[in-house]
Write a protein that binds this DNA or RNA. Sequence first.
DNA 1: TAACTTTGCGTATAATTTACGCATTTGTCT
DNA 2: AGACAAATGCGTAAATTATACGCAAAGTTA
Lengths: 230, 230
Amino acid sequence: MYPQQNIRIAVDAIVFGYSHHQLHVLLVRQKYGLTQGQWALVGGFVRDEESLQTAVERELREETGLTVNYLEQLYTFGDDIHRDPRMRVVSVAYFALVNSTELRPQADTDAEEAHWFPIDQLPTLAYDHAHILEVALQRLKNKLTYQPIGFDLLPEYFLFSDLENLYCSILQREIDRRNFRKKILGFGFLEETNRIYKKNAGRPAKFFRFNKLKYNQLQKQGFLFEINFA
Amino acid sequence: MYPQQNIRIAVDAIVFGYSHHQLHVLLVRQKYGLTQGQWALVGGFVRDEESLQTAVERELREETGLTVNYLEQLYTFGDDIHRDPRMRVVSVAYFALVNSTELRPQADTDAEEAHWFPIDQLPTLAYDHAHILEVALQRLKNKLTYQPIGFDLLPEYFLFSDLENLYCSILQREIDRRNFRKKILGFGFLEETNRIYKKNAGRPAKFFRFNKLKYNQLQKQGFLFEINFA
DNA sequence: TAACTTTGCGTATAATTTACGCATTTGTCT
DNA sequence: AGACAAATGCGTAAATTATACGCAAAGTTA
């Protein structure tokens, strides 16, 4: 009924952050083992008495000290029996987003060496982590179009141009600034604040804020978030 | 590096079928153990040397003899440590669809007792399987609107009214028959055949066929499947 | 043949998306 | 100060898509 198995269960987290107009991924350098020195996703083995989600949260805390803004299960990688060449490990991967203000403080923990890498300048990754990252990136791109998760990558107060740049750079397509603004504002879940940002050039911009309560309320009323540009 | 764990990995399959204008789920009666006599999802433990997907396929074959039309990983349930009260089991759940012509032959295997239940007349389910089923049903509903998986629930040749009824009954809303037809035909991946079906009443209807090749082709060209009715 | 049922096509209207134009508000340069 | 550059913010016309129906066509039944 409960056969013996020689399989381990691990969790891994793909943590995305956004800064300097670029998407970044958090990676840690492997300290021990076969892959020593290589870069890998944050992760580790699940303890007998903790839930999967707790396991990821613990690993994130231990290895990076970060507080994530959004966390959801991504996919379970267990079809390649030799993804870890030394023994069979099934990994439940989680997808995480951090607020870009969180991005700086590189953990005050006994963190392994953790670094943010721009998505287009990744090092070689250990195990099948490059593949996992690919899946995560696809999820991010998809989700961006039908759920308001872009705000979890931005600070609480942000400019419209930030939001616009985020969509442009992650989805890698052009969007019409004016139609984008009109559409998002039309949704009715962005609060205009009276904080104003002055750049070196151009007209100063208002800070906006995502009103999550308002969004939840709208959603309950059948509202569907959707961003699709030609 | 590779700690001992006292956790087992199982796979479960939520198999949906469609017949008699109703969505059905395949369940098996438990033969042994704590939950003996109760109904449960098809599933079992993963063997050391098989992939997760292979494990589901094996269990499906062994327990039901069915050939599924569509199979994808749904979610991994491992947050409730006591979902199986006797020991910790993490279950990777898979989502499967079968062609309704497959629905009849109830397996010629040494199958456990397997039965199709209409979605609104389910028995009490073992473990947390009611919850898993809930998640699967939600996935089905969502996916129906943005991927052409409805065709995996229908026979190769089907009538427009079948497709229409499938959408109506699963999504539980009314749709305008004429607009629905116009929209789907406009996609251009349905082949009109010269087979004709005569009912007892009304104008005879043409059989249609889903052209998967054509769909893949369109998709590559950036076409987006989407069915949203008010 | 009249009544009934279901399929299949079409058209008018409403709503939404797309493509732009341009005024506004700042800083900078001369 | 005035001209110019840079970025924000608002608006409007045209094209496309969705919605709401009407109704002919092709059978069966009485």
